[in-house]
Design a protein around this nucleic acid. Structure first.
Length: 267
DNA sequence: ATGACGGATCTAATCCGA
């Protein structure tokens, strides 16, 4: 049984419901995790996705900012959100599925961007980001025997090959050592496997985000890999394919992030 | 050439993203 999982920071799901529709039709993932839906739960375009077969949906939104949602062709057995840093914002959603006869928890994250200045003493947004990452270190890939998947916009590009210039970005929020070390620590402590890097060589340059501010995103190609798919080691052993769907960045009215897709072969 | 844009909001100028 092939199981296809996708994550996409959509940067307003109401504005881009049509793009999501095109993506679901072309790639047919079993489950899609969205970030930055930027709407309240009752404004989520549920019908658009339901008519394509994504009838199981969990939405955790708020007005104007942030917000995460998971839509699925497979039943969602239960779901909950955790209020990281007790900020009352909408940055996490855990949905439980059954895969190959076993329960699996899927964590959908939108980690704080962190503002401009990479100094927690003078920038509260960066302080929030570091505390959020610190709290994520307590999340294990196996909880009470239930293996996990962790996806989303983690707003950190951990490796040198995850940015267009390692040297030039060392002091830029998303690639500072305190962030990249922090994210690697989240991975190590929780025993998570970065399945995108399991599939692609460590030194292959990979991006999932390109700034809106470039005149020509493709020509300048100054991207970062901010969107991630992690899994428990046993699930990672069943990984069959990974795709970063770059074409979506060139679509009309594109999000600045593109979908990242992992396929697992479970029996 | 890392802000050059773009989204949401008490529709006009402001906050936010990364």
């Amino acid at each position: 049984m092939a199981f296809k999982l996708a994550t996409w920071n959509i940067n307003s799901v109401r504005l881009r419901a049509g793009l999501v529709e095109d993506f679901l039709n072309s790639h047919q993932p079993d489950i899609l995790c969205l970030q930055e839906i930027k709407c309240m739960n009752d404004q989520f375009p549920a019908k658009v996705f339901r008519k394509l077969g994504y009838e199981h949906q969990a939405v955790h939104g708020q007005k104007g900012y942030h917000g995460v949602a998971t839509v699925s062709k497979r039943p969602i057995h239960e779901y909950h959100s955790t209020d990281y840093c007790l900020m009352g914002d909408t940055r996490h959603l855990c949905t439980r599925f059954e895969l190959g006869g076993r329960p699996v928890d899927l964590h959908n994250f939108y980690v704080p961007a962190g503002g401009d200045e990479p100094d927690p003493a003078i920038n509260p947004k960066f302080d929030h980001k570091l505390k959020f990452i610190e709290e994520m270190k307590g999340l294990k890939s196996n909880r009470d025997g239930v293996p996990g998947l962790l996806v989303g916009d983690l707003n950190i590009a951990p490796l040198e090959s995850d940015v267009w210039s390692h040297k030039q970005l060392l002091k830029i929020v998303s690639h500072t050592p305190v962030e990249t070390d922090g994210l690697k620590d989240v991975m190590a402590k929780g025993e998570w496997v970065d399945v995108v890097r399991r599939h692609f060589p460590e030194d292959q340059v990979l991006y999932s985000w390109w700034s809106y501010r470039a005149k020509d995103w493709k020509a300048s190609n100054r991207g970062r890999r901010l969107d991630h798919v992690w899994s428990h080691a046993e699930l990672a052993d069943h990984l069959s394919n990974v795709e970063i769907f770059e074409d979506a960045r060139g679509w009309e009215k594109a999000s600045d992030h593109v979908p990242v897709i992992a396929t697992f072969d479970l029996e």
